[in-house]
Design a binder for these strands. Sequence first.
DNA 1: TCACTAGTGCGAGAACAGTTGCATTAACAT
DNA 2: ATGTTAATGCAACTGTTCTCGCACTAGTGA
Lengths: 205, 205
Amino acid sequence: MSRPGGRTGRIRRQVLDAVRAELVEHGYDALSVDAVATRAGVHRTTVYRRWRDVGGLLADVFDTAGDDAWQPADTGSLLGDLLALNDQILAALTERPPATMALIAASFRSEDAARALGRFWEDRYARCEPIVGRAVERGEVPPGTLARPLLICATAPLYHRLALMRLPAEPGLAAMAARTAALAASTGAFTAPEPGFTAPEPGDI
Amino acid sequence: MSRPGGRTGRIRRQVLDAVRAELVEHGYDALSVDAVATRAGVHRTTVYRRWRDVGGLLADVFDTAGDDAWQPADTGSLLGDLLALNDQILAALTERPPATMALIAASFRSEDAARALGRFWEDRYARCEPIVGRAVERGEVPPGTLARPLLICATAPLYHRLALMRLPAEPGLAAMAARTAALAASTGAFTAPEPGFTAPEPGDI
DNA sequence: TCACTAGTGCGAGAACAGTTGCATTAACAT
DNA sequence: ATGTTAATGCAACTGTTCTCGCACTAGTGA
């Protein structure tokens, strides 16, 4: 029989708060189960038993992080919406301390964290779909434009440069990615392939 | 005085081979200095002294990985070239065992590995620039088209979905990303912004 | 109020990562 | 060949991470 009441919930809150505080103060590398437990005023064993490892802790933090009311900005144009979105992604990936980067890094160390990050992004991209819906209504892009590929096209270059290649933020990168995606979308690049569409054979590779 | 001869070189080869073998057999999570040293028939201390940690080992593997004669395929069209490139990236990110993914994961654990991965990708993208040069010569894209943003736009969605979001390879994803980039490039989306170009202000976010 | 038990605290200890001092080996120059 | 010394082998040591068994605390239902 589960006991979500009093102590269990209180300890969970204490521990997750400690994780966020440790993350902010000392970064991800210093995030150990021991430090979290000590800061939360809880015994190590309790943390190991309930969260298994650092990845489990971060996965729990992820899940609670998704419980907000975030919505993409509505600027009145597809390009404006994508620019605003990319500004926010850029800010998240370059913030100090690098909490977002820490969570991405953790997702490569723990299956739990990876799944939690996947759920988080899935949720965020779902909330962004109205951007494309509004663009269709305004006639900026053809009906049948697929939201996900368009959103991925607009945002992926930022993640690629900042999260994967670990290069500094290039001025104009966010804007160029948004411009490119909006332009490609307006020419119908993201409409669903006609049934039976197959990729052209690129000859011998 | 340095001694690149006999023993030093031989041990380096043994150890790096052991790293690759461990990576292939047991994945990244099981990659410990001890396991590598044992497999290479070398003492732990030697590995610690020369490579410092697991990240140093992987950085060395990265650097040797760049010592090949890889060149992008020349299919005769920009779209074909990008499709071929994405096919190779897709294959690398989904290969079994996931050696490439293991190296990407390692780059989040070690600064050395991250820098080595950066050098590797920088080298690869540099080798891909002729793709854009040929497209300009054929008149497929306007002169002044920037190679890097175009290549990033074509390849980033693959990395985003497979490496970051850890989702399965969606059929047609590689082809759609290549198509989009080629289409956007042909409309001049990747020409250098005119001097003084600034991103439109997206109003309040 | 009182038994029941999920969840927690505690300490011992195993397992692993990483370091240090010293002896030994073998590449290089002469 | 022979001495020099960079590089390696070896063993003992430190410190951290993680597990396990048992006692205890505090929600929960009667």
